[in-house]
């Protein structure tokens, strides 16, 4: 556990030693309310809730989480520091876990930057704060899932741009799978079991429950599974480096 904490602290510090975390937080702080105000028409709904924010948040996360995750392993490979890291007596779960938790902390800080909107709806009306808190939990889990996917794909390349494109593409597909458009096309052309299976894989479907203020065990397990499976995949790919292409 000590090595995980050491990696976590190093990674978190690394985010703030370069402009990356500041740019990321600034973009998120600007873009999340912009989505809510302009696309979600925050004031036009005449409702004291944060639905305009949470409806569009997955699309923002599809782009920004892979941007946060792309450096995780690609940068280590590019700079040669992966060899330094691989020569340290660290279990792979500690290095993948530490890197993931550091990125998730930055993502949580970004999501927390939307808190003024939560304060504003409390000032303007009487929202269901429990439902909003549940939606925030869903957003955090969705961000975690996307980050873990992004980090797994970052382990496949030494090029951060490639890692970003792969990560954003994978997150986009995982989100799209739950859209009514995709499901209706699948419903017409694919066996019912297959379209149900694909809908079940969709991050959007599981996020929707949280967005509607519902915490279900299946949705929690989905995100926990998504995060753990992606981190395990990252670990396997880094372990493969030791094989030297064997």
């Amino acid at each position: 556990m000590g090595s995980l904490i050491a990696v976590y602290r190093r990674e978190l510090t690394a985010y703030f030693q370069t402009p990356l975390a500041y740019v990321f937080l600034a973009v998120f702080a600007f873009a999340a309310p912009a989505f809510a105000f302009h696309i979600g028409r925050f004031f036009d709904t005449n409702r004291a809730d944060l639905a305009p924010l949470f409806d569009h948040l997955p699309w923002l996360l599809v782009i920004l989480m892979p941007a946060l995750a792309m450096r995780a392993w690609a940068e280590e490979r590019d700079r040669g520091t992966l060899e330094f890291l691989m020569a340290l007596p660290i279990p792979l779960w500690a290095s993948t876990g530490g890197k993931f938790l550091a990125a998730w902390t930055v993502a949580a800080a970004a999501i927390a930057l939307t808190a003024p909107m939560w304060i504003a709806v409390n000032y303007l009306g009487e929202p269901d704060n429990m439902a909003i808190a549940t939606a925030y939990l869903g957003a955090l889990l969705l961000a975690g899932g996307y980050l873990a996917i992004g980090q797994a794909l970052s382990a496949t390349t030494a090029n951060q741009v490639v890692a970003f494109v792969l990560g954003a593409g994978a997150c986009f597909l995982l989100t799209m799978a739950g859209l009514p458009l995709v499901l209706s096309v699948l419903g017409e052309n694919a066996p019912a079991a297959l379209s149900e299976f694909i809908a079940g894989l969709s991050a959007l479907e599981h996020y929707d429950a949280f967005r509607n203020g519902v915490i279900a065990l299946t949705d929690l397990l989905y995100f926990a599974g998504l995060i753990l499976a992606s981190l395990a995949a990252a670990g396997v790919m880094i372990a493969e480096q030791r094989g030297g292409g064997r």
């Binding site: 000590g2 090595s3 904490i5 050491a6 990696v7 602290r9 190093r10 510090t13 690394a14 030693q17 370069t18 700079r79 040669g80 520091t81 060899e83 330094f84 020569a87 340290l88 007596p89 660290i90």
Partner: peptide
């Protein structure tokens, strides 16, 4: 390692401390 790779944003002090904290 060959080429002495290290994290460019870290100071040598933080870099050495990181290796020790891991241990």
């Amino acid at each position: 390692p060959e080429g002495a790779p290290a994290y460019p944003a870290m100071t040598p002090r933080a870099f050495v401390a990181f290796g020790l904290q891991v241990r």
